[in-house]
Amino acid sequence: MPSSPALPTSSSTQPTVKAAMSLPPLPLDAIDVGLHVPDWRAAIGAAGDALERSGSTAPGYTARMVGVIEEFGAYVVIAPGLALAHARPGPDVLTEGLSVVTLAEPVAFGHPHNDPVNVVLGLAVTTGDEHVHFVAELANVFNDSSIIPALAAAPDAATVRSLLGIAAPTGEDASTEETS
C-alpha cells in the first residue's frame, strides 16, 4: 500500500504534515470579507467573482460551480459553516486558485448538518491531480475547529490570509493592495 512518505507515522492527535506543500497564492483581491448575500447562489457567485478577479478563472467557471451544487446537492458544505465551492478542471480555469468569501449573515445551502454557511472557499484546479499537493495543507489548516469561526469574524482580507497561514504572493506590494 503506497502510504505517503511525507506522512508521519505517529498517532498524535494533531496532524503534522508540514512539508513543502503550500496553498496556492491568495492575493487580497481573491478575498471578500463580510459580504451581504441573499442566498447560496449569490455566495457561490461571490467566491467565483473573487477567483475571476484574481486571474484564476474565466467567466463560466462560477456557473459551473453553481451547477455542481444543482446536480449533486449541498455536499460542498463539508464542515459546519464552511462551503468548498469547486467544479471540474476546464478551459475556464486559467491557473489554480483559491478564493475566500466571508458572509455578514450566514446563508443556508440545504445541508442537513452543516448549515448555515458563513465562509465560502472557491477552488479552481487545472488538473484532477494537481490540487492534491495543497489539499493536505488545507486540511492542516481546517482540522483546527477554531479556524472557521475565526475566518468568519476576520475584519479584513489580510487577517483572513494570515489565519490561513498564506504569505503574500511574490511581487505583491502592500501599497497597491486595494480594500475593495
Binding site: T9, V68, Y75, I78, H86, R88, L123, V135, L138, N143
Partner: peptide, 27 residues
C-alpha cells in the same frame, strides 16, 4: 464526492490520518 476534486481529496487525506491513528492499513 460529486466531481472528484477538492472535497473527496480532503476526505481522503483526513481518512488516511484517521486510519493512521487507528493503526489500520488501508488504501
Amino acid at each position: 464526492c460529486g466531481v472528484g476534486i477538492g472535497t473527496s481529496a480532503i476526505l481522503k487525506v483526513n481518512a488516511e490520518r484517521a486510519l493512521e491513528r487507528l493503526d489500520i492499513e488501508a488504501d
